[in-house]
Design a protein around this nucleic acid. Structure first.
Lengths: 339, 339
DNA sequence: TATATTTTTGGGAACATTCCCAAAATACTG
DNA sequence: CAGTATTTTGGGAATGTTCCCAAAAATATA
C-alpha cells in the first residue's frame, strides 16, 4: 500500500476494464469509447497516475533521453550551450542528462559508460582537452546511437558537428590589432589537441602573413588552459627583450587573466599592450578596460547541435549523412584595443 | 540482427546455460561454479555486453538517478552547487539529471512531471522566485521520493534543507558598512517569496536597529531579480532628496549592476556610496573597484544537500527525520567599501 | 429479424532482468 | 555404497507498458 505505485492495472480493476483499454484511453488511441476514455482520464488524474517511462523504454528500446557531455561548466559558455540544446530537445519531447568530464579523459570515459548503461538515444559532446583517442565514442556509433560534436569537434569521426568559424574569428581579431598599429602580436594559444585551438592559430598566422608581418615563434605559446599557467606565460612574454605590443588570447578567461597581470605591472592598455579574447563572456563587458573579443552565438551552437541530433534520430532505418554547421563570429571592439 | 542488443539470454544460449545462471555469474552471486563464471564473463566481455539498467529499474523500482532542479544556471552559483552535489552522488553510485526552471513556475511544474515520469529516486531543488504553492513537490513526498531543498528553502515542507546563514551574513555586511561610517544604508532586496531574501532583510534591519540607526522604508526596495529593474531602482535611490551613502544588494549580479549605474553617474566608490553584494561571484574580484561581498561555501551547499538526500535514501523502510544544515558565510572586504 | 459491418474491449506476448523455489549434480559421511 | 548435505543450475513469476489479434458489443444494412 505504502510503496505501491499506481499502474494502469489499478485503474483497469477499479473501472472493470482491461489494461489494454486503459492503455488506449491514456495514450489517445482512437478506438475507445468517449465515455470510457473520460472515466479513465478522470480516475487517472484523481489517483495522480504517472505512466512508467521505464516500462515503455524497455519495450520500445528508446528512452527519449539525450546525454550532453561538456568538459566544464564554470565559465558561462557551456551552460549557455546546454540551455540552447535543452530548449530544442525538450520541444521534441526529449529528456536531457548532463555530464561534465571536468577536462579529464578518465572521467570522460566513465561518463561514456554511464550514458551507455542508461541507454540514451543520442549524445552531444564537447570532448576534454586531454582526449586524443576517440574509441569510447565509436562504441555509440557501433550501437547505432547518434553522436554530435560541438565546439570541440574531431576530424577522426564522421558524425554531425557544430563549430564556429574559429579561423575567420581569429583572423579578424588579429587584423583588427594590426589596423590599430600593433606589430608584435603574441598569441596565447590553446592545446594542440583541440581543433578550435588549431584553427584560431591558423587564423592568427594567416592574418600576420597576409599583412607582411613575419611570424615570431617566440610570441606563440600553446598552453593547457589552466589559468595559473596563463599568468606565468603572460609574465614570460612581458619579460622578453622585445615584448609584444598586443596579445590575442585563446579565450576570455585567459585574456582576463592576462589583463590582470598587465595591469598589475602598470602597463597602459591598449597603448602599451592591447588584448583580444574569444567568446564574449559576460565578464568581458564589465571589467576595466572592457575586453575586445570575438563573440560567438553561444546558445545557437546548442540549438544547432540539438537539431543535427534530431535529424539523425528522425530517420527510422538508415542514418542520414552527417552534417557540418559552421556558425559565424563577430568582433566586438572595446577598450582593451581602442582608447 | 542490426538493432538487436545483446542480452543475458544470448549468452545463456551460446553457453548452454540458463539465464538465471548467467545473471548470477554477472552479478557476482556466490552460488556459481568458478569455471562457469569465467566462461560467462569472458563471453560477456567479448560481445560487449551491457546490462540493461531499464529492466533492472523496472524490477527494483529504483533508477539510481537523482534529479536536480535549479532556477537558472547562468550565474556561476548553481553550476558550482551542481558540481558539488554530483561529485557526492556519483561516489554513491547515483546518476544525475539536471533541470532548470528558468525562474518560471510553469516550467518548474512541468519539470516536476518529467522527473516523476523518469522515476528519479530523489530530488534536490531550489525553487523559482515565482513559486508560492508547493503542491507539485508534495507529490514526491506522497510517493515516498525524498526531496531536499537548498539555497532557496521553504518552511511549508518538512523535508531536509541546506541553507547558508543569510541573516548573519547580511547582519555582518551591514555592520561593516556602519563601521566604515555609513548611515543611510539602502537595501535592494529580493522578492518576498524567497526565504533567503527575507532572512537577509531581517539581518539588515537588525544590524541597523542594534546600532541605533532608524530604518528608513524609502531605502528598502524589494525587486524581482531582473537586472534591468535593478538599474531603474538604483537610479531611483540615487535621485532621492536624501540619497543613500551605501547599498547592500541581495546578490552580486545586482550589486554589479548598481556599481555600473553609480560609476556612470560619476559618483566616487566607496567615498560617496559604498556597495556590498552577496555570494562572491568570481566577477566580483575582477571588476573595478572590487566588490565587497558575503561569500558562501557554494560547492559545499551542493555536497551537503547530496549527503542529506543520501541519508534519506539509505533508510530502507522508514524515512529518517528531516535535517536542516545551515552553513556559515564570510564577509570579503574589497574596494567597494574600503579605499 | 438476420446478417454484415464497425466499434469497442480483452487476453496474451514481448521487453531484460532478478529472485525464489525446486531440481539436478556433486561432495561428504558413516 | 547408500544416504545425506551441499553446491550448482534451471524454470517461472514479476516488474508496467504497448501492440497484435481475436472476441464481444454495438450499429448499420438488407
Amino acid at each position: 500500500m505504502k510503496n505501491h505505485q499506481i499502474t494502469i492495472i489499478d485503474i483497469a480493476n477499479t473501472l472493470n476494464l482491461s489494461k489494454s483499454t486503459v492503455s488506449r484511453a491514456l495514450t489517445g488511441h482512437p478506438n475507445v469509447k468517449l465515455k470510457t476514455r473520460e472515466r479513465v482520464l478522470e480516475l487517472a488524474a484523481e489517483l495522480d497516475y504517472q505512466r512508467n517511462q521505464l516500462a515503455i523504454s524497455l519495450l520500445t528500446n528508446r528512452t527519449q533521453t539525450i546525454g550532453i557531455m561538456v568538459p566544464e561548466f564554470l565559465s558561462s559558455f557551456f551552460p549557455k550551450v546546454i540551455i540552447g540544446a535543452q530548449d530544442v530537445l525538450a520541444q521534441a519531447g526529449y529528456n536531457v542528462v548532463i555530464c561534465h568530464s571536468n577536462e579529464s579523459y578518465e572521467t570522460e570515459i566513465s561518463n561514456t559508460k554511464l550514458l551507455l548503461a542508461s541507454r540514451v538515444d543520442g549524445i552531444l559532446v564537447s570532448h576534454t582537452k586531454e582526449t586524443r583517442n576517440f574509441e569510447h565514442f565509436k562504441i555509440f556509433e557501433r550501437k547505432g546511437i547518434p553522436v554530435v560534436f560541438f565546439n570541440r569537434i574531431v576530424d577522426e569521426m564522421s558524425v554531425s558537428k557544430v563549430a564556429v568559424d574559429d579561423y575567420e574569428g581569429a583572423y579578424q581579431a588579429v587584423e583588427h590589432l594590426i589596423k590599430t598599429g600593433k606589430r608584435r602580436i603574441a598569441h596565447l594559444a590553446g592545446p594542440d589537441s583541440l581543433q578550435n585551438s588549431r584553427s584560431r592559430l591558423n587564423g592568427y598566422r594567416d592574418a600576420l602573413t597576409n599583412h607582411q608581418i613575419p611570424i615570431d615563434p617566440s610570441l606563440i605559446i600553446s598552453y593547457d588552459l589552466t589559468l595559473d599557467k596563463a599568468n606565468i606565460y603572460v609574465n614570460h612574454l612581458l619579460n622578453l627583450p622585445q615584448p609584444p605590443d598586443a596579445l590575442f588570447a585563446i579565450n576570455d578567461p585567459t585574456a582576463i587573466e592576462a589583463l590582470k597581470v598587465i595591469k598589475s605591472r602598470g602597463l597602459r592598455i591598449p597603448e602599451e599592450i592591447a588584448i583580444v579574447g574569444f567568446s564574449d563572456d559576460p565578464i568581458s563587458a564589465l571589467i576595466e578596460p572592457g575586453l575586445t573579443t570575438v563573440s560567438q552565438p553561444v546558445d545557437e551552437i546548442g540549438r544547432q547541435a540539438a537539431r543535427l541530433l534530431l535529424n539523425q534520430l528522425a530517420a527510422e532505418d538508415e542514418r542520414p549523412e552527417p552534417e557540418l554547421v559552421v556558425l559565424p563570429t563577430r568582433l566586438i571592439v572595446r577598450g582593451s584595443t581602442m582608447a
